[in-house]
Design a protein around this nucleic acid. Structure first.
Lengths: 201, 201
DNA sequence: CATTGTAATGAACGATGGGTCACCTGTCAA
DNA sequence: TTGACAGGTGACCCATCGTTCATTACAATG
């Protein structure tokens, strides 16, 4: 019970912060959204800022254990089609998972005023995916599925367009369908371009 | 003088909003940053919200006349090197121009709570550059500088990675040098991949 | 010179923000 | 049964928020 409320506060805070930002959220509506009165919050956190810092701690820790460690690197695909599959699974997950989506929104909002949010935003939006797909593409080149090229550059060229579409979904969720279709089209186009057997004259 | 102060208020508001967001900015520090007392603001705007709306009007109008009209489409390059040049000029401009950079920051912060900011963010971050480079690449294919391919897809694949690096510069300005270098490297890599005479076996 | 209008001031206002505190309630261990 | 304590309540505190207003400073106009 004790722990439960603390977790519920963090959940609600993430939701509100991802909509209105830290400064745009007040303790009254935060507590109200949990069906308790505002002073109740202070039994679990000593200040609004502590809620924010705890939330950031969680986001940083979650990201670290989920994407930061080597053992969570995805398996190297055995065919171009498997790359598309893997990409789509990853994209759908990261778009549809409410918590991950809200985390991205919060980072978008707070990245310019909080240094830890700034650093995590760069990981989330740029370097994380690039590192992951550098590994994937290195493996695919070894297997002869991709032509020899700079895997880090390919990873960068592959993940940033997808990332842009993920951001679009955060901003305009009603375009999720189109965005996913575009991700798939892009993924196939990418393979057509960089696949081993491809030669355009 | 009259008009001047109004403009200075808008400039200062853009700067503060881009750092702390609309909710995180108060009229006192806004007026203080202009060397006047807070009530002075209300001779020029009737509310904080009117400042925000005026600022958004300006951003929307500026974007429309700057990137929205057909006559502002860039000339089609006559060589691959010219594409790199044009890209670098555009990137440096958009990164180093304080007002444009602050506009992007504001849109990042406010995109989830204001519908007009949401729409403008999608233009700024995604569709604007794509439309522009669809035109460029169509022209380059006609001139035989790029292999035949879907120009919209190429434009998407070309502009979104650059856009990601521009966002990085907004977030971590000290990385501007590396980011620009990476943009150039990416641009050259892109041409090596899609240039007409290229054939990887 | 008097007048008129505009920009700026500083004191004040009500509303709302985050945070505190004394109190109540139910649970559980001794 | 009792006592301690965690979790929740409502009244309250004070700083700060956006905003108003009577007044002043001053430039331009007649």
């Amino acid at each position: 019970m004790a722990h439960d409320t603390r977790e519920r506060i963090l959940d609600a805070a993430l939701e509100l912060f991802s909509q209105n930002g830290y400064a745009g959220t007040n303790i009254r509506e935060l507590s109200a959204s949990l069906g308790l009165v505002k002073s109740g919050i202070y039994k679990h956190f000593e200040s609004k800022e502590e809620i924010w810092n705890t939330l950031l701690d969680r986001m940083i820790a979650y990201y670290g254990e989920r994407f930061g460690s080597a053992e969570h690197l995805p398996p190297v695909p055995d065919s171009p089609e498997e790359l598309v599959d893997m990409t789509m699974r990853l994209a759908e997950l990261t778009i549809r998972d409410e918590k991950i989506s809200m985390t991205r929104k919060v980072l978008s909002i707070e990245q310019f005023r909080d240094d830890r949010a700034r650093a995590l935003a760069t990981k989330h939006f740029l370097t994380g995916l690039t590192v992951m797909f550098t590994h994937v593409f290195t493996g695919m080149m070894d297997k002869g599925l991709l032509r020899k090229d700079d895997p880090a550059m390919l990873a960068f060229a592959y993940t940033t367009p997808i990332s842009a579409l993920i951001h679009l979904c955060d901003r305009e969720p009603e375009k999720t369908g189109q965005a996913l279709a575009k991700i798939e089209a892009f993924s196939r186009h990418f393979i057509r371009t960089y696949g081993k057997d491809t030669c355009h004259e």
